[in-house]
């Protein structure tokens, strides 16, 4: 049975945008694991990565340098955020911490609007714009960069978590922070590492996708929220679940736009999150708890 060219097109499109949601969701999962905080500013890391790259290229720097610079800048901001806003509120209730991250998200967005205005910007594609034909579907080379880049990052993270001491320390902390501290793991460092990694993931996502869909000061809102939906779908705190969740959200979105109605494309992610909450609160891969209170 020949698969329609349309379907293949949608599939690739869905995997591309899904890869981005997966990276953002991964960022949510990592910070949640390190601190049980839902970092609503995750989407802004995406925005800062893309916009900073735009500015650096505008200054005349070559692409690779601009990308590296932007990632460093975003990680720096992420670490600063952790030091200045999260750590002082370490003993606060989860409600207070959620409010702080929401505040940071708005702060970053507001600052971005002041710095960069409300205009849309674009980045040059990494290797040109000539579409590649696969099975009748026209795939942008940048799409391959996105999928490949995301795949490489995820693989790198898997290696980091399973084969380095720092990575294993993060996993240990997510299971039982007290026990982790008792065996000598510096949980403050783990938290910082978590924010640093998430900022890097966000920035990478923003840079990869910018050549395809333009970037602007407000791009982080929807991307962040949808990445969050991906993380919840995968089971909050399950990194690989977030990646899978991202792909599912991305593909569902594009399929809905293609076959059902393009008007409600954006609603898909949020309908998914409502469905998860009603039918499968622990997500696809999350733990089912037995304690009530």
């Amino acid at each position: 049975m020949a698969v329609s060219a349309d379907f293949l097109q949608f599939l690739f499109s869905g995997i591309t945008v899904g890869a981005i949601y997966g990276l953002v969701g991964l960022g949510f999962a990592i910070i949640y694991n390190a601190s049980h905080v839902i970092n609503f500013a995750q989407g802004e890391f995406v925005m800062i990565g893309g916009m900073t790259t735009v500015s650096l290229i505008g200054l005349g720097l070559p692409l690779l340098v601009a990308v590296a610079g932007a990632i460093l800048a975003t990680v720096g901001i992420g670490l600063l955020f952790e030091k200045l806003a999260i750590e002082p509120a370490r003993d606060a209730s989860i409600v207070a911490l959620i409010i702080i991250t929401i505040g940071a998200s708005i702060l970053f967005r507001g600052a971005a609007q002041v710095i960069w205005g409300r205009n849309f910007h674009s980045l040059p594609s990494f290797s040109g714009d000539d579409p590649i034909l696969i099975g009748g579907a026209a795939i942008l080379p940048q799409s391959l960069w996105v999928i490949g880049g995301a795949g490489a990052i995820v693989a790198g993270l898997q290696w980091f978590f399973n084969h380095t001491l720092a990575g294993k320390a993060m996993i240990a902390t997510s299971h039982n922070p007290l026990a982790a501290r008792l065996v000598g793991i510096n949980t403050r460092f783990v938290l910082m590492l978590g924010f640093g990694l998430s900022a890097m993931l966000g920035a990478a996502a923003g840079i990869l996708i910018a050549p395809i869909s333009l970037t602007y000061a407000g791009v982080g809102v929807m991307l962040g929220l949808k990445g969050f939906c991906a993380a919840v779908l995968g089971g909050l705190g399950k990194p690989m679940g977030a990646v899978a969740g991202g792909l599912i959200v991305g593909i569902s979105e594009v399929m809905t736009a293609g076959y059902v109605s393009s008007a409600y494309k954006d609603a898909v992610a949020f309908i998914i999150i409502l469905a998860v909450l009603f039918f499968l609160p622990s997500g696809l891969f999350g733990d089912r708890g037995t304690e009530r209170v």
């Binding site: 806003a85 002082p88 509120a89 606060a92 207070a96 911490l97 409010i99 702080i100 929401i102 505040g103 940071a104 998200s105 708005i106 702060l107 970053f108 967005r109 507001g110 600052a111 609007q113 002041v114």
Partner: peptide, 20 residues
């Protein structure tokens, strides 16, 4: 007006840290 979001964000963070 242009700074509205920035100010709101700063207020949220500041209140939660200093005046919980």
């Amino acid at each position: 007006h242009d700074f509205e979001m920035l100010v709101f964000g700063a207020i949220l963070i500041g209140t939660m840290i200093f005046m919980r």
